[in-house]
Design a protein around this nucleic acid. Sequence first.
DNA 1: TCCAAAGCAAGAGCAGTGCTCTCGATTGTG
DNA 2: CACAATCGAGAGCACTGCTCTTGCTTTGGA
Lengths: 244, 244
Amino acid sequence: MSTARGARARARIEVTAAIKDEARRQLAKEGAAKLSLRAVARELGMVSSALYRYFPSRDDLLTALITDAYDSLGATAEAAHGKVAADGPIRRWAAVCEAVRGWALAHPHEYALIYGSPVPGYAAPDSTVPAASRVGLLLIDIVRDAHQGRGVALTPLPAELEPEARRMAEDLAPDLPPEAVTALVAAWAQLFGLIGFELFGQFHRVVEDREAFFRNAATRLGHGVGLVFPQGGGTAGGGNRPGS
Amino acid sequence: MSTARGARARARIEVTAAIKDEARRQLAKEGAAKLSLRAVARELGMVSSALYRYFPSRDDLLTALITDAYDSLGATAEAAHGKVAADGPIRRWAAVCEAVRGWALAHPHEYALIYGSPVPGYAAPDSTVPAASRVGLLLIDIVRDAHQGRGVALTPLPAELEPEARRMAEDLAPDLPPEAVTALVAAWAQLFGLIGFELFGQFHRVVEDREAFFRNAATRLGHGVGLVFPQGGGTAGGGNRPGS
DNA sequence: TCCAAAGCAAGAGCAGTGCTCTCGATTGTG
DNA sequence: CACAATCGAGAGCACTGCTCTTGCTTTGGA
């Protein structure tokens, strides 16, 4: 059903893709604030008004780019995870974190679009939720696998947070202990804090070797959600060989 | 020397302040993207070109607002810290974190201006550095005080990070152990990750009781940099009474 | 096969933007 | 007092998002 029946429908999805491509190109070059519908149309050899047949407004174009960016990031993270799926949880956790950072460094403006300040009056429609959740779900899976084997000791929750923690666990991962879910959500936000600070220049003249710094911070983040050290497996863990 | 000698100079700083005030008002209402020089001028009863006598460009106006925002945040954090200066390190740490979050919630658009995606081709001039550093310096002070008394055990650094950690410690706090400084910088970034996620809607349908969630996450962040529990002081800690 | 309906690109036009330049008027200083 | 610096006002340029109307082309049903 998704195969276009007529030539017209086919042309429509092609033009739509071309518009998004050109918009993405301008986005990467100048940033979201300077993304101009007219410039996109000009570059595509059409007139600005024609573009409104495909996107009812500039914000709708941005929404499409946002969804695509979430999906691109999610796919990158999932692919990176797939390559180390046989390793231990911290290794997988670190791999996902580094993949997210790598994608952010490679697509700074798209990253800013989805994790930076939201556009003026714009509220992301619910249609972006599935794409936006992919990285989070991946992290949940990793933590779930780690807790599957044996229970991991986490610092207990304060009483004031217990109901909320129970609720979050119910929503996100009913098979995980509430303190693990709470720590996970926090680590998830903190991960993007690290990346955002690096990307948005807050580490200027503060952190130089950002690669090493991030690797360490991300690993510590993993420890914070209960993932254990590679060599801590007891059985002379397979996976302790130095990576390239 | 800062007192204006002539009436003209006095008028100048007054008009400059009025422009920033009105700009801040529009910023709070519509966000940075919709901040219009013309609208500011209109509201002030002058013509747009007159405004260029005070700010050479829109970006310069934004820069002024950015510096002011950093200072406002820094002052808020310092004031909050001053009120609990006699308490233990984690309490002071948590107080600063919550003050930062409170300021962010009260001034979301200004927060987005300084910690959100940077504007297009804009690079913050070095003049913003001192104002931008205030919160970070405050956190360093707290950690320094905590480590002053007794050394606190932190997880050792991996070899690859050791030179960078040493360098950072040299730059930021030569009297602190490198692993503490590294953890502190990470926690600093992670703190703003928590706040940014809450503010920019990433916690939508995920975290409900954000107050409690943040308090717990911020406290755990403090533990991560070596700050100990209030009741862990041994001497039946003064400061364990439930705060209002 | 024919024809109305729908989809489409183009152009003109509106209201708004940042910014520049010029022109008088005001103001402070030698 | 006179000169120079400063300031506000206005016109104007190039640009933006967006709307509306005008024709042309494709499509799908009778």
